[in-house]
Nucleic acid binder design. Sequence first.
RNA 1: GUCCCCAUCGUCCAGCGGUCAGGACGCGGCCCUUUCAAGGCCGAGACUCGGGUUCGAUUCCCGAUGGGGACGCCA
Length: 497
Amino acid sequence: MSIRVRFAPSPTGQLHVGNARTALFNWLLARGSDGTFVLRIEDTDAERSTRESERTMIDDLRWLGLTWDEGPDVGGPHGPYRQSERQVHYDAAAERLVAAGRAYPCFCTPAMLDADRQAALAAGLPPKYSGRCRDLDADEIARRRAAGERPALRFAVPANREVVVHDLVRGDVSFSTDVIGDPIIVRSDGSPAYNFAVVVDDGEMEISHVVRGEDHLSNTPRQVLIYEALGRTPPVFAHLALVLGPDHAPLSKRHGATSVAEFRARGYLPEALVNYLGLLGWSPGGDEEIVSIEEMARRFDVSRVGHSAAVFDVDKLAWINRHYMKAAEPVRIARAALPFFERDGQVRASTDEALDYVASILPLAVGSVDRLDEIPARVAFLFAWEAGRAAALAGEEPDGARAVAAWADVLETREPLTDRERFRAATAAARERSRLKGRALFHPLRVALTAEASGPELDLAVPAIERGAALAPGAGVAPIPSCLERLRAVVGMTGKA
RNA sequence: GUCCCCAUCGUCCAGCGGUCAGGACGCGGCCCUUUCAAGGCCGAGACUCGGGUUCGAUUCCCGAUGGGGACGCCA
């Protein structure tokens, strides 16, 4: 029988990277065989679930490349794939459990339950449901219903039994039913509760492997019991260790970016995030860590994922992202980086010329920068150039004024240095004219041209300036002063000083 | 409190009874170089502790300690 897995997020916010990793591992398991990957939306909490959240999660999943075969947007033979649309299935299953005497109405109010919990905790006892409504007689149930009370439905957990959860990453884990309270399976408003809905859905959707976070492990025995009561064989489980922050607390907002959307907005590439997430808790084997998602799928083996929680390491993600930025097609990076140039005002309209220009200056930044959003700052000297600061820095150089004057003289007589060869030719001329070489010749040029003491290589930076200066005003790029304009200004100011 | 899970460099992984305990990120140094990065090379850096089992434990078993999770009409 072929593998069927699912990713079942609750649309109550952004897609968290920990969940994205769960989705990835499910995807790898499905794609590694000829399995099926199902997307199911767990929106039984009407209060917190939103359609907007569902949309952004789907969007983020697609951005990551984690495509699914069945889901709310693509349909499939086991739909609907939104729990809010599956009420009839839950009703039917609940009826069966009631008929079999495995579920009973519970009239306890949230306030009573809360008081019970507080009391148990205070007494040092496990805060499990007291079982108060478990043996209500039929008359009382009928009377209270008639009186307008709306009971929830609880599953009756059998006493004194061992339940074994077969887990691919942890092996067999057993629990005593004595520590498990009767879970609510249907709320008083008729909607299904998590522990019930997952079982009904995973069962009916014929899910073979449930790969999810470790936080669900303690809930699993309840679910196994419900599978049994429904007369179904439970799927095989695989509980993934959690993703932690640097302080070993679960990764959360205070650690910085935690959602896929945030990483996306900060200029990480999807393949980089996917590659990194795949390395968290699993190893593709061998020494190579840069591995495509397809290759990961070929090598993936759930039973070989790590057992312990992993700390999310932003530095390593950055290293991987740097790698993929260098490997990617310049036009693609340019297109992805364009919004950051627009944000900084360096690009004012995303015209074809602007895109071409951005693509052409990428070599100045890619490789020295971790993220797309850092690219504009690396090339800011092209647009924001301050004559005063440039002159001041040039003045600090031993032969700064002489060098700058020589460069200016050379440029006066030449075509703009729009490519590396022209720049090199000009270099020879400037060296001869100034009788300077090495740092003494180049550093003054750098500070005069960029108003910065460091930055991209000059044989890349100079042509970038010249090509930018030649752009028409309608190109959508902020004005870029030419090398000659910059040098003239600096010569004028250092001359006065 | 009760139950469950986990434990190799700072971090992520490899190891599956005998290894100089390997790789990656990060860190330090050197090289390259007209600067900063990038890149190349080198280096420092770990088996939580205590009992067993065994000729031999990082590896198997038990316990302790530490970390995490669950115990909700959230998922």
